[in-house]
Design a protein around this nucleic acid. Structure first.
Length: 318
RNA sequence: GGCCUCGUAGCCAAGUGGUAAGGCAACGGUUUGCAAAACCGUCAUUCCCCGGUUCAAAUCCGGGCGAGGCCU
């Protein structure tokens, strides 16, 4: 795993959306001489502030933040790009004698940070489009069968309707001549539990997941979404819509932004739209939780407990 | 008070005599270059209640309760 040294003194603070990560991180950063690196796939975009709960200018003045506002909303983003930037940011922070603190809740990026990515080929837009068209034309089963012919192991673990992953598997095979299952040796997934080959050591970055009772978390999510509306979220989305370029696929799928954009040009029941956004945000939190539950390296800490700061510091080994 | 319509899971809803579609929500899960995305699984021994007809009723009949509409 390249560049692990850049993460040598890093720390992680994660948790589901609206659990109180950012506020806590500010205090923690002051105590450990840290700078914050956003572990987030959406706060990278300029102009997407309210709906992504991006730290404010005042908060950023208190503690330096990295990887915020580094992309125009019409630009695409991938995990690999994020990971490379994160590594560079950490190197920079460390060189200045500070400690990088990853703060955010994008679980896929977190997993990539902890376990690395396999050294395979990046996405090939043209090939991918062709593969997707093929799936649409011949059916999901047909393309899945094609994968089974070249990579039985991966085909067996992917549902035929999981077109996205079937396409990527086919893409990697087409580009490298090797099945993706040969490349994917980095992660310790159950699918490879029986493999004999040695698994690389995961990067030992101390990490904490903030926890909150489900009902409390859901209530905070509902309130925060409403607070975002009150803060002018809809106007922010109007501004994005009036930009010279349309949002990239990645930015356009941000929670709430997608629904608000749809509401702006199709109209409809505002109350229903607001409720849809609250619901989808709760569902996202649920998905985050299933990742966190299965990342044993993370130490759980109750977000609403008195003395959280001390508990997090202790879990970090400080 | 009379007439009509309706009552199926948390919500919407199909089914009008042959053994409870579907959607949403909820809950669980997958996740190696779109991940705030995408995908998968589970979820009514029962159809407002009581009685009747029938080999068989959510479906037909009678009564009750509840909701809505119209009339006086």
């Amino acid at each position: 795993m390249p560049g692990m040294s850049a993460f040598a003194s890093a720390l992680i603070l994660t948790g589901p959306t609206a659990c109180g990560k950012s506020a806590l991180a500010l205090d923690l950063a002051a105590r450990v001489g840290g700078e914050i690196v956003a572990l987030d796939s959406m706060t990278v975009y300029r102009g997407m502030d309210i709906g992504t709960a991006k730290p404010t200018a005042a908060e950023r003045a208190r503690v330096p933040h990295h990887l915020l506002d580094v992309l125009d909303p019409w630009a695409s983003l991938t995990v690999a790009w994020w990971l490379a930037r994160a590594e560079a940011a950490c190197a920079d922070i460390t060189a200045r004698g500070k400690r990088p603190i990853f703060v955010g809740g994008t679980p896929f990026y977190l997993k990539a940070l902890l376990h690395g990515l396999f050294d395979g080929p990046p996405a090939d837009a043209v090939l991918r489009a062709a593969l997707e068209a093929e799936a649409a034309r011949d059916g999901n089963a047909a393309i899945h069968a094609r994968l089974a012919a070249v990579d039985a192991k991966t085909a067996a673990r992917l549902h035929p309707n999981d077109v996205r992953r079937v396409v990527r598997a086919l893409e990697v095979h087409a580009l490298t001549g090797k099945p993706i299952s040969d490349w994917q040796q980095t992660w310790d997934t159950p699918a490879f539990a029986s493999d004999e080959r040695p698994k690389p050591q995961a990067a030992p970055i101390p990490g904490v997941v903030l926890e909150l009772p489900r009902e409390v978390l859901y209530d905070r999510i509902n309130r925060r979404v409403d607070a975002m509306f009150a803060a002018g979220w809809l106007d922010e989305v109007r501004r994005l819509r009036d930009l010279p370029h349309p949002l990239s696929r990645e930015a356009g799928q941000a929670l709430g932004y997608r629904e608000l954009l749809e509401w702006l040009d199709a109209g409809g029941d505002w109350g229903a739209t607001a409720e849809l956004i609250r619901t989808r945000t709760r569902q996202f939190a649920k998905r985050q939780l299933t990742w966190f539950r299965h990342l044993p390296a993370l130490v759980p800490v109750a977000s609403d407990a008195p003395g959280v700061q001390e508990q997090v510091l202790k879990a970090w080994g400080e």
